[in-house]
Amino acid sequence: MSNAIALPVLSAGDSIERYIQSVNTVPLLSPEEETELATRYHRDNDLEAARRLVLSHLRVVVSIARGYSGYGLPQSDLIQEGNIGLMKAVKRFEPDRGVRLFSFAVHWIKAEIHEYILRNWRLVRIATTKAQRKLFFNLRSMKTGFSALTHAQAKEIADDLGVKPEEVLEMETRMSGQDVALMADDNDDEGYAPIDWLADSHDEPTAALERRANDRLQSEGLREALESLDDRSRRIIETRWLADEGESKTLHDLAAEYNVSAERIRQIESKALQKMKLALLPAPV
């Protein structure tokens, strides 16, 4: 869709509440208005008509994006990706099919958000080789306590997993997001730490739920999600999304391997990703 269509832009620093209030002020379209605008866009390339179609459905994107808040990704980014899917839907929408744009757009919005999540999964961003993935899955369980690893501890873990101590320390830093210690050094009588200014919200319910969801997603969650799949589905996901660079397989490669169509592989992949998504959702408390 042309860049001439001006849409509300939600950046990471903006207030999501303010954005939601803004999109909720856009009036909904009647079926007749929707058909007229879609016809004008496809028949006359009327970009103003397309803009009105998109604006009237931005609230739908917000609603869908909220369903993916458990993946540790910024809500603003999820909304923006969903907006891209909405614009793709408007471009392909055919009003004479007798289907409302809302129903048609849901698929495109979710598809764009799914693609964004896959591109930004913590595993894909942090662990790019087989050895690093092994380290990623095991580092949390092999650590004792919450303090940073010493060089001796890092070397012991490295020896067990067949990697370099430097890789262990780097992975720990990347997984922790370079967290700053809350507590001051016991030997530093004059030092201050963030704990001195922060209230103790460790047991606050929202924070506890967020920690639980993030820990599950970043450590054992993905491994358990893969283990929930049958052998064929797991191989498709691993070779399509988790293989080392240059070793991934296409739909057609896997279709030839299993003697089925590429479309059948795509269906299996889609079903497997949906099952993994459900497995990754935090368990009820």
Rank of each mutant, 00 (worst) to 15 (best):
M1S: 09
A4F: 09
I5S: 04
A6P: 00
A6Y: 10
A6T: 15
P8E: 09
V9Q: 11
A12E: 15
V23T: 03
V26K: 10
V26D: 07
L28D: 15
L29P: 03
P31H: 08
A38Q: 02
A38P: 03
N45E: 12
S56P: 11
R59I: 14
R59V: 12
V60M: 14
I64E: 02
G67Y: 02
Y68P: 00
L73Y: 13
Q75F: 09
E81Y: 08
G85Y: 01
L86T: 01
M87N: 03
K88P: 07
A89F: 00
K91D: 07
V99T: 14
H107C: 10
W108R: 05
A111T: 10
A111P: 00
I117V: 13
N120V: 02
R122V: 12
I126R: 15
A127E: 05
T129A: 09
Q132T: 05
L139K: 08
T150G: 12
K155F: 07
K155V: 09
D159F: 05
D160R: 15
E170S: 15
E172P: 12
R174L: 15
Q178K: 03
M183D: 08
D185M: 05
I195Q: 13
D196M: 05
W197N: 14
S201D: 12
S201I: 06
H202Q: 15
D203G: 03
P205K: 12
A207C: 12
R211W: 09
R212T: 07
A213F: 02
L217V: 07
R223W: 07
L226Y: 00
S228R: 06
S233W: 00
R240I: 11
W241F: 14
S248M: 13
K249I: 04
L254D: 03
L254H: 00
N259I: 00
Q267L: 13
Q274H: 01
Q274L: 06
K275D: 12
L280Y: 00
L281I: 03
L281A: 03
